[in-house]
Amino acid sequence: MFTLMRFAEWENPATNDLEWLIRKDGCMHCEDPGCLKACPAPGAIVQYSNGIVDFIHDNCIGCGYCVTGCPFDIPRISQTDHKSYKCTLCSDRVAVGQGPACAKACPTQAIVFGTKADMQAHAETRIEDLKSRGYENAGLYDPAGVGGTHVMYVLHHADKPGIYNDLPENPRISPVVEGWKGVTKTAGLAAIGLAAVGATLHGLFARGNEVEEHDVQSADALVKGEDPDHGGHV
């Protein structure tokens, strides 16, 4: 849920060749999760011992602070039940010894699942292979600013994460969120804190996909099972 395949068409200035930078954009399952830090509802966001960060919807109050707290802009509030959702890394499947569905389904094993140490070792072989094919800056994306992540990427150009549809170079939990459970708890500072959160929210939303109005309408129609062409144009 709320996992997107993103790709960027990037012209490599070193070679003048076009490259497609494809990224599975979803919850990174941070070791130090900003969403969990921001969440005011006890038990709504949990982190299991295996590293998976999960949302417990019965406890979610739909405040959206996790959206603000996430340095990767992942969680979204459902307009239907007003609770927050994101990729669970198939915590239910993992709990019974199965890997996540995406890894299971991927025909080319672009997504693999295992212990962090195994995955780091696997990444090493991938990086070595990419370097042998001319990608000198290939490397692992496992950013330290959030304590490392439990979803990691092998990037061809690990020196420039930003070219992968704005993958943050050094993701950090917003200082506002860091402070949320500390000093800003005092009533006097709350108003300032909220204003700052508002500003951050705006910044995040402004980075979303740009979609034309008629695309939204026809997508809505499609979801409702209506004729997407009704009233539209060719």
């Binding site: 025909p107 080319t108 672009a110 292979d129």
Partner: peptide, 20 residues
């Protein structure tokens, strides 16, 4: 093949990964 035969294309991935 990667687009029109994604399941078969895994054998190319295998060859790349294991034979270079």
């Amino acid at each position: 093949a990667a687009e029109a035969h994604p399941c078969g294309f895994k054998w190319v991935t295998e060859a790349k990964a294991h034979r270079g």
